[in-house]
C-alpha cells in the first residue's frame, strides 16, 4: 500500500502533469502581464516592497522570464534550471504576499489579472502548493522531455 503510494507520488508521469500545469500556469499568467505591463507595474507597486525606480523595469522583464520558463517547462527543456527559477519566483511572491498579509494591505494578488480577490492565507497556501509541485517536477520529472529527445543520446557517450 505504502509502496503503491510512494510509487504514485514519485511517478514521473505525475511530475509530467505538474510540469504541464505549472508551465501552463506561468504562460497564462505572463500573457496578461505582457499585454498590460503598466497594470503589472501598479500591482508590483501595490506590494510596497520594490524600490520606486525598479518597479517598471521589473514589470517589463518579469513576465517574459515567466513566459519563457513556462514554455520551457511545458516543452521539457532545461527543466531543473527552469524549476529553480520558478521556485525562486514563487517564493518571492509568497514572501511578498505574506508580508502584505501581515501589513493588512488591501491589495489583490495580481497573479493573473490586475483585479482579483484580495490576498489571503489561501493565496499563500496556493503558492506553496505550486512550489511543492515545482519541487516535485525538479525531483521526479523524466518523461517527454525535449532535452531527452535531442540530448539523450549524448548521455551515452563514454570517454
Amino acid at each position: 500500500m505504502m509502496n503503491g503510494v510512494r510509487k504514485l507520488v514519485t511517478s514521473p508521469w505525475l511530475a509530467l502533469a505538474f510540469r504541464l500545469y505549472i508551465g501552463g500556469l506561468f504562460v497564462f499568467a505572463a500573457m496578461y502581464k505582457i499585454n498590460y505591463a503598466a497594470e503589472f507595474a501598479t500591482t508590483i507597486a501595490s506590494y510596497r516592497l520594490v524600490p520606486y525606480w525598479a518597479v517598471n523595469a521589473l514589470a517589463v522583464f518579469m513576465p517574459w522570464t515567466e513566459i519563457i520558463c513556462g514554455a520551457l517547462l511545458i516543452l521539457g527543456i532545461r527543466v531543473r534550471s527552469v524549476c529553480t527559477i520558478i521556485v525562486a519566483l514563487l517564493s518571492v511572491f509568497t514572501v511578498a504576499i505574506f508580508i502584505n498579509l501581515l501589513r493588512d494591505a488591501p491589495i489583490s494578488c495580481g497573479c493573473f489579472h490586475t483585479i482579483e480577490d484580495p490576498i489571503s492565507w489561501w493565496t499563500i497556501l496556493r503558492d506553496v502548493s505550486w512550489i511543492a509541485m515545482t519541487v516535485h517536477v525538479y525531483r521526479f520529472d523524466a518523461v517527454l522531455q525535449t532535452d531527452q529527445l535531442f540530448l539523450g543520446k549524448l548521455k551515452r557517450i563514454h570517454s
Partner: peptide, 22 residues
C-alpha cells in the same frame, strides 16, 4: 485606453497609467 471583456462578462478599461476601471 484599451478595453477588454472578461470571462465573467465584466468590461475592463485599461488606462495607460496602469489602472483598471471596471
Amino acid at each position: 485606453f484599451k478595453w477588454s471583456v472578461r470571462k465573467d462578462g465584466r468590461l475592463w478599461l485599461h488606462t495607460r497609467e496602469g489602472g483598471v476601471i471596471q
